[in-house]
Design a protein around this nucleic acid. Structure first.
Lengths: 344, 344
DNA sequence: TTGTAAGCGTTATCAT
DNA sequence: ATGATAACGCTTACAA
């Protein structure tokens, strides 16, 4: 069972006293083969349990109907939804997906890209890791004639196709909403600034403050607070300031926002009356917390679909030179109880 | 950029006035090649930006260092964690992963398996879809000399390697715990019975009842309640019975348990005093609800690692004929407030 | 409509 | 230690 030889087109040809090329033609639905022999070939192919060897045909044709995906983490809702979106499109196009996770490590990201290049994938969809160092590996993708679509966490300096998700405007909206609700001292939990998305979210925060004439208070901005625990620690620090904030925008993630809520509850601080909390990503649990958390939905599955469509509808057809190289998915502010100071 | 030819071992050979076979030997680290030429080859390979063509070498060697994974849904915590576990092992072994999702559709599951067979993957890791019909496609995997590891949702009738996760004992423990807490009328939300896991969970429920001398009450058992909404509907029905249950075991998922909690809260029923609730899977949100939900942790990432290790440590080495074909991951009951009637 | 033959980029086997 | 050659299974000009 282990090592029996699989049937090839030659086996079929031999059995029917035909030539392998006829079999190939028949199986790939070419027109130049008579209906009778075609039927015969299809029949015996089935009998012999024939399966095409895609390694061989890929090699011969010089193209591999496979797309490589590199994400920081597979098992994070945001990314697994993107992958699901990608898969929905690629499956229907008959393409396979090779999935790699960088585990937020730059070194590993480089290795993933390397193996994908070796696999001769048609395209790579990639979101960079948290400790991104430089873009040599991404340049080498292009050097090997492989298409590249960056999404979400992208290297701006590289002129590739990109799917972005309006981080700056989302942060702007969120902070504006906090201001409209009457919060006066709004803190920011920010993520690693080598990632574009966190830079943009910070920019949105700053823009909203300045638009409403609010001062920028440096010690209300906490770096690297992007897990539940780090969010909680940051909150403890913030609340013990002489002039503590009355709202915290956890721009990094809903997990950080959850950490904020943890601390607020353990200290008996009322949310949203005494402290407003806003997260980022619309994780499932944000509607379950007490109070439910205001957050930003990024339409992650949509992002995935757009990434894949960008490849199939534009790149592959050689369309879109400059126009349409960048797709923007507009995120949406989801207002819930954790910031509704006025309405409670 | 798009269509330039990639450098091959012939290009390197030509440049160094050597033979392609020497280059091949040098690059694949064989011993029978002098240190000097080896160094030379490696150097020029780098200069020419050479990348091995794995399609070609796979074809030649007759093996594809790729593993196919088929899951019902990629973007479900349980499965994405399993995939993360698988990836952790396969990455380190230098294997690639082709991921497919069946979307709980049998037809699509068959297609996924088909493409994986065509890809000549070394092994398929699979968890069957909800509307599983028959195992013809799984049999054909073996017929093509491809290894198969089933996990979690498996077809018991097939003699393959399996990674299971003690569904029956977990359900037994959960229901025993409910009984010990003093609940008298324990309802069951059950899933599609064509899936082994739901059958086993039901069996565990029944076994626990009978062990403690509890009667089996048919109308406390609700079929197909495995989403939040279906769980809520089932709960409404249950609570309007003349003799409603005082505990509900949502054996299908934590989402169903959440639906139960929704209804309890909207009806002002106190959890756990008037109604005990137990879920299944230890989703992230179960520790966030008010009250927190008792559930069962399945160690999903561990399952993934075990699946992959089963292949690398046993199947691939031809070890383990009968012994060790089935690995059992013991799940763990996580007791939280939603069932602690006695302690509140 | 069918057959012939070359070639995709490797690697394995044999000879040198 | 290195070279020549065939082969993996398929596709595709080209010839018949």
């Amino acid at each position: 069972m282990e090592n029996q030889k699989r049937t090839t087109i030659y086996d079929i040809a031999r059995k029917l006293d035909l030539n392998a090329s006829s079999v190939s033609r028949a199986l790939s639905g070419k027109s130049n083969v008579s209906e009778t022999t075609k039927a015969l070939i299809l029949k015996t192919a089935k009998e012999l349990n024939y399966r095409p060897n895609s390694m061989a045909s890929n090699l011969r044709r010089g193209e591999n109907r496979t797309i490589g995906v590199v994400v920081p983490r597979i098992n994070q809702n945001y990314f697994s939804n993107i992958i699901a979106g990608i898969e929905e499109v690629t499956y229907q196009k008959g393409y396979n997906l090779i999935i790699c996770q960088s585990n937020e490590s730059y070194e590993r990201e480089v290795k993933c890209v390397d193996t994908l290049i070796n696999q001769h994938v048609s395209c790579i969809f990639l979101s960079i890791s948290a400790d991104f160092e430089n873009n040599e590996h991404l340049k080498s993708v292009a050097e090997h004639g492989i298409n590249l679509v960056q999404f979400d966490r992208v290297d701006d300096s590289l002129d590739t196709y990109k799917v972005l998700c309006g981080n700056e405007e989302a942060a702007f909206e969120a902070v504006s909403h906090l201001i409209e609700q009457g919060y006066k001292r709004i803190a920011l939990l920010e993520g690693p600034q080598n990632l574009n998305i966190f830079k943009q979210r910070k920019a949105g925060y700053l823009a909203a403050l300045s638009k409403h004439g609010f001062p920028i208070i440096e010690n209300l901005i906490i770096e690297n607070a992007w897990t539940r625990e780090l969010g909680a620690n940051a909150t403890k620090d913030l609340l013990s300031l002489p002039e503590p904030p009355d709202a915290i925008f956890a721009s990094t993630s809903d997990f950080a926002a959850l950490g904020v809520l943890d601390v607020a509850q353990s200290k008996g601080i009322k949310v949203p009356q005494e402290l407003g909390i806003c997260g980022f990503s619309n994780e499932e649990f944000t509607q379950i917390t007490q109070p439910s958390l205001t957050t930003i939905d990024q339409f992650s599955k949509e992002i995935g679909k757009n990434v894949a469509n960008l490849y199939f509808q534009k790149m592959k057809k050689g369309l879109a030179t400059e126009v349409g190289k960048i797709v923007n998915i507009k995120p949406q502010l989801i207002i819930r109880n954790s910031t509704l100071k006025n309405s409670v």
